[in-house]
Design a binder for these strands. Structure first.
Lengths: 343, 343
DNA sequence: CGTTAGCACTCACCAACTCTGAGTGCTAAT
DNA sequence: ATTAGCACTCAGAGTTGGTGAGTGCTAACG
């Protein structure tokens, strides 16, 4: 796409996009000639703009307004035109400092990360916490709450904790629960959580277990414990988006509100990102999400060693300072990875 | 307040408020005579309205519009005029059914509760989860994550779990951690969390402990564990509020957005409710919160046995169907109390 | 042939204006 | 004490005209 563009037309498109990014207003032919070094007359630019419109890269909101970049234009811009800036040193320092009060647990780190992403990018920060199933199991424990209510606690290597309340059919003595915990820890510790369930089923066929009813009960209990919890998502800085001029109208604003209220949607999107490594960009309609017109998402995965833990990123208007935000997201992701890994 | 009101003026005020609640538009003298049974001419009503305005119970947005109730009017209405309806049976059934998939953990119950409050009231549901410190301690455990990183896990009687990552100065063997857990459980189990810290300090002065350095380490570790985590809040149905006509303008809408983004504020408000038993109502400015003009909050505490756990409620426009919402909040609170208690 | 100057045309936006209807406050009659 | 009547106010909707930014087209130019 966009191969049919002459060098000059590319320059013009770039100029228009960058102008629009800062002004948020349709840019006309004269503005292009004025603000940018290309020695062209407005008329020439107009011709070029007509071409670009034909190719689906520009639209005009009405006859006598300037042109506005389409989603496709942004895509082309991001892919071919944009020289992704390096994040400058002062900024980098500023980000690093935010994590100064180190040693806190993962939840706190991630929460701080959203705030950071939001305040540094001036858009909205978003973080998808690691799914429990993407970790390795460190510890498993049953705590008796009273009667037949048992609280099962799972701890992952990275410090993530998942707990689940189980209403068991029979009442267990506390000592039995301890024995069961020990047995299961022996069996399951160090296993990737994703494999725990199959390991349990495997063990259930073990003849030794069949004779010891406590063990088999333990296995049944543990099986109930391992269920995929709903993913946790953090977001911060929604008002940053409302302050963008393109949302200064009731209808658009409601849409944004709705988009953010439906967290499942966002989770889905971020979940899709988890498979690919590194920075990903979704421009406007590319998100395939409702109520997301005019919004773009920039994400990156954060990892621990080889396996990716989760996704973080920034949501902003399509008219976003990609050149600035991309390195921010990238750097933050790398920083978070390091933070969660070598602690 | 409002003692100076004649019986007739009360009726008129009531009519105006109830009219405004359904129409969301300033109500004029004729509307009052038409819709309500009082046999009065518009002129008479006008006189009465002038009186009510003088008393600070009504205002007119401009000369030739009808009157709108003030916060004080709503307050008077709620205190003296409103006959709080009983929640009807079908509704009650509908609510109960939402909890059908029982036996899930507290987080799930509370989350479902916000959704329920939102969808039944058609406003926004809000739930403040129990502070950990308002429970009694059931279990305490240290899990070694690797190196000097230790995950401390606290379990409360009601199934709430709090965990905290600790970077200890020295490395512990797993067996030692188990011994420490056992010792601390012996010491602290069954204590109200609020008293745990003092109990720890007490024990630190115990001569026996001084000799056993493992115990004293355990105490130091446990002391780091007991810190007040930030309160957790659930909310759902924000869009319900945006759909109210009084927020159909960019400025007001941004305000609402801001109000909801500053969760600390809301936590503060709900925290204030926790000391009083039962239903509480904050009308508009009574919340003493920023960006809350035009919004009211109805809350109730939910309890387990004698001690109150948390707060739940509904946020809606000041122009809210109090008569309907109050019993909903009340009933839901009682239901949640029962649900969390006798499981 | 690509580029440019010139020109007629379009159309959102703004401000001023008018008209209408709902609603008020006051006064005088009941 | 209540009400009918009346003059007055004012937001909101609709109308109008002017302005300016911007376009597309055509013809001239290097």
């Amino acid at each position: 796409m966009g191969e049919g563009l002459s060098e000059r037309n590319k320059k013009i498109l770039e100029a228009i996009i960058e102008d629009y990014i800062v002004t948020a207003e349709p840019v006309g032919s004269r503005a292009v000639t004025r603000r940018h070094g290309l020695n062209l007359s407005p008329a020439t630019v107009r011709n070029a703009m007509a071409d670009l419109e034909e190719m689906g890269l520009l639209t005009s909101p009405h006859t006598s307004a300037g042109r506005v970049p389409t989603d496709r234009a942004y895509r082309f811009y991001v892919d071919s035109l944009l020289a992704v800036g390096c994040i400058d040193k002062a900024e980098r320092e500023r980000i690093r400092k935010r994590y100064a009060g180190a040693g806190r647990d993962m939840g706190a780190v991630l929460h701080e990360t959203t705030r950071l992403l939001s305040s540094v990018s001036h858009y909205m920060g978003i973080v998808l916490a690691p799914r429990f199933s993407s970790t390795t199991l460190r510890h498993m424990e049953f705590v008796k709450l009273g009667g037949r209510r048992i609280l099962a606690i799972l701890v992952a290597d990275n410090g993530a904790v998942q707990n689940r309340l189980i209403e068991s059919e029979e009442e267990f003595a506390e000592a039995d629960l301890v024995r069961m915990s020990n047995y299961l820890n022996e069996l399951l510790q160090g296993l990737p959580v994703a494999q725990v369930r199959t390991r349990i089923l495997e063990e259930m066929r073990n003849e030794k277990v069949l004779y010891d009813t406590l063990f088999s009960r333990a296995l049944r209990l543990s099986e109930q414990t391992i269920v995929e919890g709903s993913a946790q998502i953090f977001m911060e800085g929604q008002t940053n988006i409302l302050d963008q001029p393109e949302f200064a109208d009731v209808g658009r604003m409601k849409d944004v509100f709705r988009a953010f209220e439906e967290k499942n949607q966002l989770v889905n999107l971020l979940d899709r990102c988890i498979s690919a490594q590194g920075v990903q960009i979704f421009i406007g309609s590319e998100t395939h999400l409702n109520h997301m017109e005019g919004l773009s998402v920039i994400t990156s995965t954060y990892v621990s060693g080889k396996n990716t833990l989760g996704v973080l990123g920034v949501i902003g208007p399509t008219r976003m300072g990609y050149g600035k935000v991309i390195p921010i997201v990238d750097y933050t992701a790398k920083l978070v990875s390091k933070l969660l890994e070598d602690e």
